[in-house]
Amino acid sequence: MKRLYVAAALLIFSVSISFMCYFILRNRVDNLVLHLNQALEISENGGNSLIEKTKEIEDVWNETSEIMHMLIIHTDLIELEVDLLSLSEFAQENSTDHYNEACISSIHNLQHIKESLIPDWGNIL
């Protein structure tokens, strides 16, 4: 019976980790998408606070990237990382088109990551 308790504990631990990782990652991705959408809005309206917002995105990314690298195959994050880290350069150069392009690409990548985490039949099978 002792072994059964160990098995049950392991099962609960594994399931909890899976759920916890899913929710943490989903919240982090949502947060990053929200910041990117705000930056996109500022960029399209020609706002002055774009550099500060970009700095904010970089900070959020630095917090998020650690957990993302823990849970997602690293090669899947290369494009996203390159896009997000180039935002500050585009913002300083006032290269709005490139900035918007990088923002949209990052949002798409993040949405793809989020969708790939949803436990639906498409992802399971």
Partner: peptide
């Protein structure tokens, strides 16, 4: 490859095997 995926998979297999 994230190591946590393997850890969860191994722990699940072990618990299933014991049960």
């Amino acid at each position: 490859q994230p190591i946590i995926n393997s850890i969860v998979a191994v722990l699940l297999l072990v618990s299933f095997e014991i049960i």
